[in-house]
Write a protein that binds this DNA or RNA. Sequence first.
RNA 1: GCGCCUGUAGCUCAAUUGGACAGAGCGUCAGCCUCCGGAGCUGAAGGUUGCAGGUUCGAUCCCUGCCAGGCGCACCA
Length: 565
Amino acid sequence: MNGALRDAVRERFGTQAVADQELFVQPATSEKFGDLQCNVAMPLARRLGRAPREVAAGLLEGIRWPKCVERVEIAGPGFINIFLSEKWLAGYCARLLQDERCLVPEVGAGRVVVMDYSSPNVAKPMHIGHIRSTVIGSALDRMYRYLGYRVIADNHIGDWGTQFGILILGYRHFVDQEALRRSPVEELERVYAASYAKARTDREWMEQARRELVKLQRADPENLALWSRFVQLSLQEFERIYRRLGVRFDLVRGESYYRDRLSGIVAMLKERGLARESEGAQVVFLEEEGLPPCIVQKRDGGFNYATTDLATIESRIQEFSPQKILYVTDERQQLHFRQIFAIARRVGWNTELVHVWFGLMRLPEGTFSTREGNVIRLELLLDEAERRALEIVRQTSPSMPEDQQEEVARAVGIGAVKYADLSQNPQSTVVFTWDKALSLEGNSAPYLQYTCARIQSVLDKYRETIGPLPSAESLELTHPQERRVAVRLVRFADVVLRSASRYRPNLLADYLSDLAKEYNTFYQNVPFLKSEPGVRESRINLCRATAAVLRRGLTLLGIETPRRI
RNA sequence: GCGCCUGUAGCUCAAUUGGACAGAGCGUCAGCCUCCGGAGCUGAAGGUUGCAGGUUCGAUCCCUGCCAGGCGCACCA
């Protein structure tokens, strides 16, 4: 359809008239304006100095529409309203029902994208601040994979750096082995905090920590063994959380993985005249880009995160030749990545680098920090989510066996936590409250899961009382509400594409809740199991198609859909 | 001081990057047949999109200036 319009524009107004990327058709803003609309006539009219309606009329004259178009109207100042053929809509839903992929095209086939998300620090428990990167990153990961991209999800954990000197020293003096066995990461964090506090007032202690760090960097066996143990303990705990969240990485390469490349990066930057000495450090100046200078080697000869990130890019390009590398981090790193990307461009690395940033998570009383002691551990949040969900499941499904209740509570609770984050614009700041994070009503995961379970139940009932599910071909739209559902099903593929290409899972979440709402209206107001044979089968198929899209959509967001909830 | 972001219904959030009378959920109010799962459905009330200008057929969106808040700005990541 876009093609037909674009061709018509080119033919009548010249090839320069519109850019390739320009959006031509979009969902209509109201159903009285049809199913789709095209607004291209108005900007075009301005450029041509003609009346918009006249341009629209000229555009439509003799245009060769695809067969899905029933009729077209010009309205208002020059809107082109497109009405889809009912028969085509029904046919599309029938095809969607028979297609494993819900007719979502594999636009990413043959393309590679590296994704960098979650990335917690070793020796610190994951807290609620980590959830956005993990959940948003994981949703984008799933969407890109589904679109046919080869995705390499790399958990770039903070496992190297100055903090390990302090930690090793603290470990030697303060560790409580019993506590370490009980709750390893919690204990490591305590040890680190104690050592850090001492270092701030005690110069000698600070100096010792620095020596421990140097020993580690020179591969002293004892310190290396300790470091490696800290990493292992932390990874085990992270893994436990990832399992609960259904998050999986292809690689877990911490910063340490790139440590042997760091001096090479700096040497390369110097050689190309990009880095030069300033105040004892090696610095890349980025005046042309309007950015502040970026330090790539400290005065003491040590490297910092900028160096590591550059080395990481180099390594990823060499190993995977990705078209794109995605970083999902909070907004505070915007400047840092703009610097890194600018340097990468100067070096000549032409992989597309994208910083997908999201707003900070805060508490009502302000920013949280380890030092303030007001962090909320991620595991605690997940526990609470499941607990609240279980309470409700027990109320609403008292006859369900206990282990199934728990299983449902898990899916619902975790789903609610994820959905709370995924359903809003990533870039907005989140003020954390328990009730918001664990919302189980309104526009929430359980509403969508409930809708899926209801459809499942309808299908079960059909098989029980009528027979095997009907052939997928029989699908007709005989009620206006069916049409509303069908129009939305048709949009699914576009929504997935748009949501992925704009790095906005909330666009998909919005769509799913809209679809579920239309379906529930249908469910509530239009009989189907009790309607006449024929119509009944058609409506059952519409239910099935809806379920397929809801399930697929939720899976892309990383949310489970239990058969019953 | 410079830069990035945010400000939308009482509350929590949308709005397909300039489109048609700004939409949902929660809360409030009024309803839903011995009927497929009531975690549901139908309806009502609720708005000067922070403020003031500008650009044009048209602005929550773009430009300028204010106000309020968040974040960042050379050796932490």
